[in-house]
Design a protein around this nucleic acid. Sequence first.
DNA 1: GGTGAAACTTCTAATAA
DNA 2: TTATTAGAAGTTTCACC
Lengths: 159, 159
Amino acid sequence: MAKFKLDDVDHQILDILIQNTRVPFTDIAKKLLISAGTVHVRVKKMEEAGIITGSSLTLDYTKLGYSFIAYVGVFLHNTSQTQFVLERIQEIPYVTVAHITTGKFNIFCKIRARDTLHAKEVIFQLDDIDGVMRTETMISLEESINDKKRLMHTIFNEL
Amino acid sequence: MAKFKLDDVDHQILDILIQNTRVPFTDIAKKLLISAGTVHVRVKKMEEAGIITGSSLTLDYTKLGYSFIAYVGVFLHNTSQTQFVLERIQEIPYVTVAHITTGKFNIFCKIRARDTLHAKEVIFQLDDIDGVMRTETMISLEESINDKKRLMHTIFNEL
DNA sequence: GGTGAAACTTCTAATAA
DNA sequence: TTATTAGAAGTTTCACC
């Protein structure tokens, strides 16, 4: 898929909305010295172009009792089983992301659980899927997320 | 941190907003057969309680020319260097997440790059950090993200 | 392309239940 | 706690630059 051409105004709009989707267009307009109508049109275009695919809340899962994060590498008996196993993995809600990978593992996923006991259950569920040979777990002791804004700035300065 | 008590109405509000933060409160109210004022109060409370920590746009990075995802495991000479290395890693904008982990690697991170050539540069940057012994890369061939909504539903049914 | 203003929709806080 | 309501605020469209 080709790059999409965004100008500086688009970048600044994304910059603001990426940090808080509920900032009013009128506020953005004031800040960028353009009209609210323009902000509206720009956002709509970026949505139509598929650059903006949606918006989501950021929740504190720790406050909901889910403070445990781990990455689990999955080894398969045979790579032909990849799709089947992936589908089984997707049925486990505690697996938040799964990747088919090259390198050490065949499938690689991130899980979010309540605690070690709960994580053990989830990992056993993964182990029990037909075609899975074994798994290897890396427990996250500390997560540090790099602000999306940093990547965006870097991307924008390249375009 | 303790669990927070959310009732069914809160769950349903989160369910809707997690999929699209811009759904008007009046629409949510209609759907849940409550008033918009109530929705407003509930959301505000969840924000104050720290359950809702923010909102963000979902962007299609592939459309922006960034279709390459890889996970990189980092081995350190000495775990005492963990904090130092983590700080250097955070300076690289193409690293979107980094974790201190137990298990195979000392630090584990996710990178987003334009292509293999660019990824190579990023990985070399990681390798060059003082204290890093070596890295191990797993390239993502296919990413499958499990809907946040699924995890939420599961969490809610437990609470 | 952008603007500004009108028409419409939504938000929000105070009041009442 | 929740509902109602009315004024404030935001969104969206459109005729005109």
